[in-house]
Design a binder for these strands. Structure first.
Length: 275
DNA sequence: ATGGTCGCGAGGCGA
């Protein structure tokens, strides 16, 4: 049984002691991390290597940054999604890393993804759909879909895990009416997210939890966690070949999000049975 | 209540 988790840590260095505790207790084999918020030279390679992980990173100073930790060997690392026009321009924002991990002679393609939040202060009379950050978010989704489509023919075990910054359905956010048209629950971004499901990816949390309401993120402001005012915006979207192997899928907020110095997100994971 | 709270890095931006 292999456990694969995703966790937006909101600064790898601010979270390091808590992250190491969680790794020790939760015992994931593969972890996708988002919001590292550090340059590569400041990434805690030694501490995480000592914890037993191979490491692949795509770092950026102060903002963004994604990584993959794995108990198994990491190969074929790709950093950043291609641009839609296939130009050789690289995205200045470090939001994507992908690799192939071999477990008992089976290849698993794993990606750690940090979709842009897309929210911003709006000028007078400006609508959210007109803001540059929101347009960048929608464009990032288009790039992601294009890339995932290009991998579909491989018929692999594929896991696209990370912070998608979208609550999929009404059950996935505490106040769907209040968030209608707002960031995290705007129709246009929900359509982009659903497009990933329409091309064949599966929301792995829902494989084992059809009806339950559970969140992976709670705003630091307003004591949101105590009031359970959250949203499910972190996902492991998986290929059909992976979905067939799922033995368990869940969210780990207790003992993580309720701690001092917690990230505003908590981990979510799947366990898969590799024959 | 047009705020609130973190993290980065040293003022304001991003979430």
């Amino acid at each position: 049984m292999i456990k694969i988790a995703t966790f937006n840590v909101n600064s790898i260095n601010a979270r390091l002691p808590k992250l190491l505790d969680w790794l020790k207790n939760s015992k994931p084999d593969i972890v996708c991390l988002q919001e590292l918020k550090c340059e590569e030279k400041n990434f805690p390679f030694e501490a995480l290597s000592d914890a037993g992980f191979n490491i692949a990173v795509n770092c950026q100073k102060s903002y963004n940054g994604v990584a993959i930790l794995s108990k198994y060997k990491i190969d074929d690392v790709i950093k950043n999604l291609p641009m839609l026009d296939n130009s050789n321009e690289t995205d200045p924002q470090a939001r994507y890393i992908e690799c192939v991990i071999s477990v008992n002679n089976q290849a698993i393609r794993v990606a750690s993804i940090y979709v842009p939040n897309g929210g911003s202060e709006l000028m007078a009379d400006q609508k959210i759909e007109q803001s540059e950050k929101f347009i960048y978010k929608l464009n990032f989704y288009d790039r992601l879909q294009s890339h995932i489509s290009s991998l579909a023919s491989y018929d692999e075990i594929q896991i696209f895990a990370g912070d998608y910054n979208v609550a999929c359905q009404e059950i996935d956010i505490y106040d769907p009416k209040g968030f209608e048209g707002q960031i995290l629950f705007h129709l246009q971004e929900r359509i982009k997210f659903r497009n990933l499901l329409n091309i064949g990816l599966i929301d792995s949390y829902r494989v084992a939890n059809q009806e339950s309401q559970a969140f992976t993120w709670w705003d630091y402001r307003g004591n949101s966690y105590a009031h359970n005012k959250g949203a499910r915006i972190d996902y492991l979207l998986v290929s059909p070949k992976c979905a067939d192997l799922i033995a368990e899928s869940d969210i780990e907020n207790e003992g993580v999000r309720d701690q001092e110095k917690a990230s505003d997100h908590c981990p979510t994971f799947i366990k898969i049975d590799l024959c």
